[in-house]
Design a protein around this nucleic acid. Structure first.
Length: 949
RNA sequence: GGGCGUUUAGCUCAGUUGGAAGAGUGCUUCGUUUGCAACGAAGAUGCCGGGGGUUCAAAUCCCCCAACGUCCA
């Protein structure tokens, strides 16, 4: 069955009737008996442009947003909801998405799975969100944004546990009350559309709230999960009811503002000052003056009304869109030429997009994101580059950081950020430099790629455009404009090319999405009790007794040498590989058997000991840890936390752990930073880390509910990645570093002894990798370095202080001598070729030299050059050498009778078989070799025979 | 996480089907002229990113690695 109609008392009480939309076929509720479209179709125009639907909000921009937000949150607080502070736009509590794309994302996956209690229930929130999927449409459609605030009220019902707060009836009632009472919208303007929602394995009934042709809210009643035997069918998949029933709502704050302002576009409602400023400095005013007869305001108003019914999404063809727009405007009495339309809409769409892009950029960087060429950081770089591109297209003389400062002051009201304003500007200035560098390089690449293209060509090859975009970062339209500047006057971008490129990218992404599922180590039943981990109770424990619950041969590709069986015990103090810390080693033994534990890993709730032999289920075993190894791993793990904290203190709040690994030899810590680190930076971090070891007496380990942990420490807790489950282990090293971490750590940092940062390397743009050694490993490292130095110094027989100077001297001398050898070799060649002439004959005015040489290929080449260079002495030279299986080289003096009469390649082909080889080259210069040096004499003799001398 | 590109003189970059490592710029010296500078001549400068392989022969073809860049998820 499908979902039943949404038939609610609130509809009937307010005079709504249920009808089916003749355009979309969806059912909807309306008070207008004559209405036959749901309101959000290609036939429903925006009705609020110039006629605001929400009264009493005369302010614009940030103050309008603030007032709207407050009215919304206030309303829901009054009806029993708890207000929750917004989450960051960087979704660091999640490992499946980079950005917060909806308010419900705050509570996924743990709250929505029922594992973790929500921070309040029911709750209300206004969550800044970033969605980059429609970034192309921003500015052009009049309504698209990459960054918006999703206002919401959420309810998490568990009817089975008697926790049922409210469902559809109350939800829609609240929504209706808020629209009509708080915002004074005429209920005749509101349509409710039934449109079931599904996504990510869940589904449910949903209601879209359409006001004045604009979708202002979506109310989702998520109570279904995908299941093969489910009794509800939606869009081809089967679903069944689930124990947790969630109300997920989303109200677009910016759209509320737009409906209250009635401006031609949403951008004028929320970024009025920036739009005005950009219009001024880009000289947009002059556009209108070009055509005094044109009613610009009228055109713009009409265009925005049209935007409401035109589906301007990402990837839509610009050319096609333009002609449709011009036709539709003409129907409405606004005659515009192609040129007029372009010169109005192109700058305008850029002016609109800039504040939106800046909003995304400031939010992302404000949360501490560092731009990069991969992963989350790429999103920031992309937005920065798009903004720069828009700026350049408008010809604005402002830097990216100046734009950002304007945005911070005007549109963000200097709201609090994690990143400092200084840091933000530094990052953006660097981004601008990199952008300029990219353009410069790209310009060269374009010229190279187009070199063979005729100047009168009308198009550029598709493959060239793809390569320039994907590999060099130059978008197709930019290639075209650069090509025009460089002399290819008539090139044009093929219509539909951008859409095709987007399709191609989508296809590539689809192919890449095929993931490989790792093979399970052992097939242990889920009913087996979870292993009790002793290492959290006492991190110092080295021995324990346990009983074998499970034993089976191992499977998988990545097994340590010698490991044959996987053992699960009821309890263990072996730490399994996780959080970048390698698994423990040691032994498991009974009275009769002793097995080596070669690695320890997890599989679900079980800890698997990878051993070199079997045990019987029920055996009582004594486990004994390789303590030196564990101690070293702990030294490294705790050090990584300390170094991370020191790096953040010294480099800035954007320092975030991008990855870490702890082995016994060393540890690696990847941190996000926008610049390469100098040795001075590393020294400063290292010093602070060692101070912490000396000063902090004890580390503080606690186990907190996720809800409390989030509240107490915020999301910087999840440096090491998003942990699973309800309870979170938190390691706090004084106020130096706090992190969620399941690894094993020292109780006393002092036990580490010392920390050294060996070096740093760039993992990707924006991520630095620190190589760290601590404890015994630090000592070993120092000894190895000493040993290296000692051995090197022994070779030279000098004191270590003199090493750099001596090495430099040796290197320069070696270079000088190599050069001198070359000169001397050349001298030998000259002597050999100029003197005696024992080897040369003369035939019909051509000197013929046939001789054996003892040099290598390079030397022979030089000799030939000497012999055949002089045009006044036409020469045919044949050289042979026994080096490397025998070599033959033949050359003639170019452009002389020698080269006319003799073909070097032909002669070579005739004689090279005698040394069992082949060869080739140009008619005036041939070379070949063989595998029979003893045949050289025969080959040279044959040459003489062929030449008849 | 995946795809693609780049790596050659101090710098910016060419280098075709494997067959003699190049241009521009900068540098050194000399000359002409001189306000800056311009011009002429000569010259020096290369582990062709690293390692393996194929070949008589590799900057060039194949494999691995690295650095840098770039697009997409």
């Amino acid at each position: 069955m499908s979902l039943p109609p949404i038939d609610l008392a609130v509809f009937h009480e307010n005079g709504y009737v249920r009808k089916q939309c003749r355009v979309t076929d969806l059912w909807f509720w309306t008070t207008d008996l004559s209405r036959d479209t749901c309101g959000d179709t290609s036939e429903d125009e925006y009705t609020f442009i110039g006629k605001p639907l929400i009264q009493g909000y005369d302010m614009r921009g940030k103050s309008l947003k603030d007032a709207m937000r407050e009215a919304f949150l206030g309303f829901f607080e009054n009806v029993g909801h708890t207000r929750i502070n917004p989450y960051p736009v960087l979704a660091r509590w999640r490992d499946d998405i980079h950005l917060t794309i909806a308010s419900i994302a705050d509570f996924q996956p743990h709250v929505t799975s029922g594992e973790v209690e929500p921070p309040a229930n029911p709750l209300t929130i206004s969550q800044p969100c970033i969605r980059l999927t429609d970034v192309d449409a921003v500015g052009r459609s009049g309504r698209h944004l990459t960054t918006f605030e999703m206002m919401a009220h959420h309810v998490f019902n568990k009817p089975n546990e008697g926790k049922m707060f409210y469902w559809m009836e109350e939800c829609v009632q609240y929504c209706h009350d808020m629209f009509t009472k708080t915002f004074g919208i005429d209920s005749n303007e509101i349509n409710y559309v039934e449109n079931p929602w599904c996504g990510g394995g869940n589904a449910g009934a949903a209601v879209e709230v359409i006001v004045g042709g604009l979708e202002l809210a979506t109310l989702v009643f998520m109570n279904l999960e995908e299941h093969p035997e489910g009794n509800v069918e939606l869009k081809g998949d089967r679903y069944r009811e689930m124990p947790l029933q969630i109300i997920d709502t989303g109200y677009g704050l910016e759209r509320f503002c737009w409906a209250a302002a009635g401006t031609p576009t949403i951008y004028e409602a929320i970024y009025p000052d920036t739009v005005a400023w950009l219009k001024e400095i880009s000289g947009f005013e002059n556009v209108a003056k070009q055509w005094p007869k044109l009613n610009l305001d009228g055109v713009l108003g009409e265009m925005s009304r049209l935007s409401g019914i035109m589906n301007i999404e990402a990837g839509v063809d610009g050319e096609k869109l333009r002609s449709i727009f011009i036709d539709r405007l003409a129907e409405r009495g606004f005659e515009l030429s192609d040129e007029q339309f372009s010169s109005i809409t192109e700058p305008l769409s850029r002016i609109y997009a800039i504040p939106d892009h800046l909003h995304a950029l400031c939010n992302m960087l404000g949360d501490g994101l560092v731009p990069s060429n991969a992963k989350a950081g790429y999103l920031a770089r992309m937005m920065a580059r798009r903004t720069l591109r828009l700026r350049d297209d408008l010809g604005l003389d402002v830097s990216l950081s100046q734009l950002a400062i304007h945005h911070l002051e005007v549109n963000l009201g200097n709201s609090k950020m994690k990143q400092t304003r200084d840091g933000l500007c530094k990052i953006l200035d660097l981004e601008e430099q990199k952008y300029i560098e990219m353009l410069r390089k790209g310009g060269n690449v374009i010229l190279t790629q187009l070199r063979d293209l005729d100047k009168s060509s009308k198009s550029i090859d598709d493959e060239v455009l793809f390569t320039l975009n994907d590999s060099h970062g130059i978008a197709p339209d930019m290639v075209i404009s650069l090509a025009k500047q460089s002399g290819w006057k008539s090139v044009k971008l093929r219509i539909g090319f951008s859409a095709e490129m987007a399709e191609r990218h989508a296809l590539m992404a689809k192919q890449a999405a095929k993931s490989i599922v790792a093979k399970k180590l052992v097939e242990a039943s889920d009913s087996l009790p979870a292993t009790k981990s002793l290492y959290y109770d006492d991190v110092q424990q080295r021995e324990f007794d346990g009983s074998v619950l499970f034993c089976s041969p191992l499977s998988g590709d990545d097994l340590p040498n010698g490991a044959t069986h996987g053992i699960i015990l009821d309890r263990t103090c072996f730490y399994p590989e996780g959080g970048g810390q390698e698994g423990d080693h040691g032994t498991l033994s009974t009275d009769s058997n002793l097995r080596n534990v070669l690695d320890t890993r997890t599989s679900g709730a079980h800890i698997i000991h990878l051993v070199n032999g079997a045990f019987e289920v029920g055996d009582l075993v004594r486990g004994s840890l390789d303590w030196d190894r564990r101690k070293q791993l702990m030294d490294h793990h705790t050090s990584v936390h300390i170094v991370g904290g020191a790096a953040r203190r010294i480099l800035g709040p954007h320092i975030y752990q991008a990855g870490a690994n702890k082995s016994i030899e060393s540890a690696r810590l990847d941190i996000t930073h926008f610049k390469r680190l100098s040795r001075e930076d590393l020294d400063a971090i290292e010093s602070m880390a060692n101070e912490v070891i000396g000063q902090v007496q004890r580390t503080d380990k606690s186990e907190l509910n996720r809800k409390d942990a989030d509240k107490k420490y915020g999301f910087d807790l999840y440096q090491g990645g998003a942990p699973k489950g309800d309870m979170i282990r938190v390691l706090r090293i004084s106020d130096h570093d706090v992190q969620a971490c399941g690894g094993t750590h020292h109780d006393e940092p002092g036990q580490i002894g010392s920390i050294r940062i060996i070096r740093s390397a760039a993992v990707q743009d924006g991520v630095e990798r620190l190589h760290i050694v601590a404890g015994q490993a630090a000592l070993n490292y120092a000894r190895e370095q000493d040993e290296l130095l000692r051995r090197t110094v022994d070779i030279f027989g000098i004191n270590s202080e003199d090493l750099p100077r001596t090495a430099e001297r040796f290197f320069t001398e070696w270079k000088d001598q190599r050069k001198r050898i070359e000169h001397l070799e050349a001298e030998i060649v000259r002597i050999k070729t100029s003197g005696g002439d024992d080897f040369s004959n003369s035939k019909d005015g051509v000197r013929i030299v046939v001789m054996e040489s003892d040099g290598d290929l390079k030397q022979m080449t030089k000799m030939l050059k000497e012999l055949t260079l002089d045009a006044n002495n036409p020469t045919l030279a044949i050289l042979g050498s026994r080096v490397g299986g025998g070599k033959l080289m033949i050359a003639t003096t170019e452009n002389t009778i020698a080269s006319e009469r003799y073909n070097a390649v032909e002669i070579l082909r005739k004689i090279s078989p005698l040394i069992s080889g082949g060869g080739g080259g140009r008619p005036t210069f041939a070379q070949g070799g063989g595998s029979n040096p003893d045949g050289l004499d025969d080959a040279l003799a044959e040459a003489k025979k062929v030449l008849e001398i």
